[in-house]
Amino acid sequence: MKTFAALRAIPTLLKIGFSEAVAYRAEMLVWVFATTMPLIMMMLWTTVAEASPVVGQGGKQWGSGAFVAYFLSVFIVRQLISAWAAWEINFEVRQGMLSMRLLRPMHPVLSFAMSNLAYMPMRAVVTLPVFAILLVTELSRMTAQWQVWLLWPLALIGGWLITFFANVAIGSLSFFIDSSIKIMDVWLAAFFVFSGYLFPLELFPEWLRIAAQWLPFRYQIGLPVELMTGQLTVEAALPLLARQYTWAGLMVVASLLLWRSGIKRFQAFGG
C-alpha cells in the first residue's frame, strides 16, 4: 500500500522536477557545458593520434576517428548518468532544510532521485544532437549488434544507480562530519581517472586496467561507452553488467545504511 502510494506520486514528482529544471534552464545549460571535458580530451587525443596512431592493449590501434567516437560517446553517457544528490544533501543537512523533506511521507532519497531524473529531458536537448552527429560521422565505429544496443540502456541505468547512490552515501556523511563535499572531490578525482572519462581504459597499463575492473568507476562510464563503440560483444558484456549491478546493489545498501544511521544525528539547524 505504502509502495503503491509512492509509485503513484512519481509522475507528479517528475513533472514538478521538470518544471524546476525548466525554471533553471540557463543554469542547467551552463552545467551541461561545464561537463565538456570529454570534448576537450577528444581534441587532445585526436591531435596525438594524427601524429601517429596510439596503441592500446592487445596492439589495437586508436586513430583519430576512434577517439572522436569514444569521447562523443563519453559525453553522452556522462550526461545521462549524472546525479548531484551529494551536494543537495550536504547543503540541506547543513542548512537544516532537509527538515521539510523529512516531514513528508516519502523517503527523502526517493525525492532526491526523482528531482535528479527530472532533469533528463533538459539534458536530452544537448545529448540528442551530439548523438545524431556521432551516428552521422562515426557510424562505422559504433556497434552494429542490435543485442548490444539492447544491453546499452541497462548499462546506463546501472551507471546512473552507481552514480546516484554514491552521491547519497557521500552526502549522508555530512550527518557525521561538518561537510562531506571534500570527500566528493576525492571520489570525483578517482572517477575521472578510473571511469574512462579522461582516457580509454584500454590505454592503461595492464595492472591499472585490472585494478579498474574491480572499482565501481568504470561501470559508470566505461561499460556503456564500450558497448556503444563496439568494444564489447554480448558474451563479454554480460559478466561486466553483472559486476555493474553488484556495485549498484552495494551502493544502494551502503548509502541507505549510512542514511539510516546518519538521520538519527540530524540536528535540524535553524528555525
Binding site: A9, T12, I16, S19, M100, L103, P105, G270, G271
Partner: peptide
C-alpha cells in the same frame, strides 16, 4: 510550520508545491 523555513519551491508558483503535496500525501 516554521516561520523561518519554507516548503514552497522558490522558483515555482505555490500551486506546484500544492500539487506535489497532493501526490506525496496521496
Amino acid at each position: 510550520v516554521m516561520g523561518q523555513k519554507q516548503q514552497l519551491m522558490w522558483d515555482l508558483p505555490p500551486a506546484d508545491t500544492y500539487e506535489l503535496n497532493r501526490a506525496i500525501y496521496d
